[in-house]
Amino acid sequence: MNTENLTIYTIVVLCLGAVLIMSRDRVPQRLKRGMALTAAIMIFLAFVFIIYSFLA
Rank of each mutant, 00 (worst) to 15 (best):
N2F: 04
T3N: 09
T3P: 05
T3R: 14
T3W: 06
T3F: 06
E4L: 12
E4A: 05
L6P: 00
L6K: 04
L6G: 01
I8L: 06
I11E: 00
I11V: 00
V12W: 01
L14G: 00
L14P: 00
L14E: 00
L14W: 00
L14T: 00
C15A: 11
C15S: 09
L16F: 03
L16Q: 03
A18W: 08
A18I: 04
V19G: 02
V19L: 10
L20S: 02
L20V: 04
L20E: 01
I21S: 12
I21L: 11
I21P: 02
I21F: 07
M22H: 08
M22R: 09
R24N: 12
D25M: 07
D25N: 12
D25C: 07
R26Y: 06
R26L: 10
V27K: 03
V27A: 06
V27M: 11
V27D: 02
P28R: 05
P28K: 06
P28Q: 06
Q29W: 14
Q29R: 14
Q29M: 08
L31D: 14
K32I: 06
K32S: 08
R33A: 15
R33E: 07
R33S: 14
G34S: 11
M35F: 10
M35V: 03
A36W: 13
A36D: 11
L37T: 10
T38S: 11
T38E: 02
T38K: 03
A39P: 13
A40K: 09
I41G: 09
I43K: 11
F44T: 15
F44G: 15
L45D: 03
L45A: 11
L45N: 10
L45I: 09
A46Q: 04
A46N: 04
A46C: 07
A46F: 02
F47R: 04
V48P: 09
F49T: 03
I50Q: 15
I51R: 06
Y52E: 13
S53F: 15
L55D: 10
L55A: 10
A56I: 08
A56Y: 13
A56S: 14
